[in-house]
Computed example of a mutant assay.
Amino acid sequence: MARSGPLGFLGKLFAIVLCLALALLLGVVGLIFAYRYVTPTSTLMLARYIQGKPVDRVFVPLNQISPNLRAAVIASEDSLFCRHHGVDWSALQEVIDSADEDGPARGASTITMQTAKNLFLWPSRSVIRKAIEIPLALIIDFLLPKRRVLEIYLNIAEWGEGLFGAEAAARRYFQKGADRLDARQAALMASALPNPRMRDPAHPSRQMTRRAATIAARLRDEDLSCVN
Score class of each variant (00 low, 15 high):
D56M: 12
P135H: 12
Y153C: 05
S225C: 11
R3T: 11
D182Y: 08
A169V: 08
Q175V: 14
N68L: 11
L150M: 11
R147M: 05
S109L: 04
A166W: 02
F81G: 00
A202C: 12
A192W: 04
L18H: 00
R70N: 02
A217S: 13
A91F: 04
Q64Y: 09
F120Q: 02
A168H: 05
R83E: 10
I215Q: 04
N195W: 01
S42F: 14
M189E: 02
V73N: 00
F81L: 02
A72F: 06
A34F: 10
L44I: 05
L44P: 04
S42I: 14
R220E: 08
A168Y: 03
L181E: 07
R48F: 13
L69K: 09
V28Q: 06
V95H: 00
A202D: 10
L136S: 05
A137T: 03
A15C: 01
F120T: 01
Q207K: 10
S90E: 15
R199V: 15
L219W: 02
I139T: 13
G107R: 02
D182W: 14
D223K: 10
D97M: 11
R147W: 02
R210F: 05
P196G: 01
I111W: 01
A21N: 04
V227C: 06
I156F: 09
P204E: 03
I32N: 12
A169D: 05
F59G: 03
G11F: 00
A187K: 09
A116H: 11
T214A: 13
I96F: 11
V28W: 05
A2L: 14
